[in-house]
Simulated assay, not measured.
Amino acid sequence: MFMMEDPSGGRESLVLIMGEDVMHTLLRLVMAWMFLLPWTTAASALVFAGVWAGKRLTAARCTSTRRMDGKTVVITGGESGLGKEVAKDLVRRGADVIIAGIDKIKAFETRDELAGKEGSLETAYLDLSKMASVRQFAKNMEGRKIDALLNNAGVADVPHRLTNEGLEFSVATNHLGHFLLTHLLMPGLKKARGKVVTVSSICHKRVKNVDDLDLKGDLKFCYEREFGMLEIYGATKAMNILFSSELSRKLSGTGVTSNCLNPGSSKTDIFKNLTNSHWYGPFIKLYVMAYAKTITEGAQTSIHAIVSEEVDGVSGKYFEDCKEMEPSELVQDKGVARRLWETSERLVQLQPHERTI
């Protein structure tokens, strides 16, 4: 930029030249951006593809070829997501699978999809948030031998609310319903010396201290925070591991085993509302696209825990990627597990004849 003589003594020429310089600078930036954009986009795409391919190549797989002919497996939430994928695998192995869930339409669609396969598939209505529904389902299962129970169903991004039975909805669905169901199906599991497999999550590590479990508040979590539903979800996933561990201790010597697992972040709909209704939703979607497992990959650890010969007789363990791992220190606390168990017995109003464990 340089100064021009202005006969009027004003600054109009200076302003004009400054304006031209700014325009030229902006034009250069736009042209540079237009030139670089394809290259940066291509580089980003290559990085994304590399991450995606790497995840696919390193994803753990259940390597067991064991057949399941004549075996009966109950899967909660088996009408969709990871539960459905596990059901498909077990039916192909010859198992008789009962998918227990709340979505009747999806359950029937899954049943029709698997019709004619080697095993069989039944559908049954079960709303884990309602203890009355759990008891009705269990009543219909009386007398049946059960080789495996997969406590799989869960919710993650629902608003905090109490059910008609006075239970926090997410806690009832993710933990208390499974706690009661396992008790009520235990006679059938003992007949088969079966397996109880409970699906947790890496989110259990969000729980940093025992107060985060709200044991003193009867698991109602009566507070409102921006990320409150994620805190409750993490707490229920910690409860899954605590329950599974205490169950294993109580079942010692019965032949029934109890294990827990983290399936890993998978491309299911469990966080659908969260990604669609918050400003950070697009970032979560991008993470899921690049890093999350496919549904088939996410189901592998559940399949491994049910069918693999390596897990026969193993109890009280936590699995990730088809191998034994260590969960957080808090969920390994036996004292906390006992407190949760006692609180759960009271909240589901466990009756004397239902104390099968």
Rank of each mutant, 00 (worst) to 15 (best):
K334G: 12
I241T: 08
R206Y: 05
T236G: 06
G50M: 13
K191G: 03
G83R: 11
R135F: 01
F243R: 04
G316C: 02
S80Q: 15
G116C: 10
S245I: 03
S344K: 13
S265I: 08
T236V: 07
L126P: 06
R249N: 13
A42D: 06
N140Q: 13
V348D: 00
E20S: 10
G177H: 10
F35H: 06
A299D: 10
L57F: 13
G101T: 09
Y125W: 14
I98A: 05
V207K: 10
P187N: 06
G228H: 14
E246S: 06
K267Y: 07
M229I: 09
N174F: 01
V314Q: 12
V30A: 13
F35N: 08
S80I: 01
F243E: 04
T182M: 11
Y280K: 03
E20T: 11
F283D: 02
N151F: 08
E109A: 14
R144I: 06
L128M: 11
A290C: 14
D211M: 08
P263Y: 03
T65C: 08
A238F: 10
H353C: 08
Q300K: 07
L347I: 08
I241R: 05
N259E: 09
K139H: 10
C62K: 04
L149K: 01
V171P: 03
C222D: 14
E310V: 03
A115Q: 07
L261W: 02
C203S: 15
Y318E: 08
K117H: 14
R135Y: 03
Q136R: 14
L114M: 15
L162C: 07
K285F: 00
N273E: 12
S13W: 09
C62S: 09
E142I: 11
L16T: 09
A132W: 00
E122M: 03
T275V: 14
E342M: 15
G177D: 04
L347M: 13
R61N: 07
K250F: 00
E345K: 15
G119C: 11
F137R: 00
E324D: 03
L215W: 02
D157C: 15
S8A: 12
W341Q: 01
P327T: 09
K195M: 04
L162F: 08
A153G: 01
L181R: 02
T163D: 08
M3V: 13
K334H: 15
K104R: 14
D147F: 09
D147C: 11
L126F: 12
G335H: 04
V331A: 02
A292G: 13
I270K: 12
K104I: 13
D112P: 00
D96F: 04
L36K: 12
G194Y: 10
Y287V: 04
I99F: 05
I146P: 01
V15W: 12
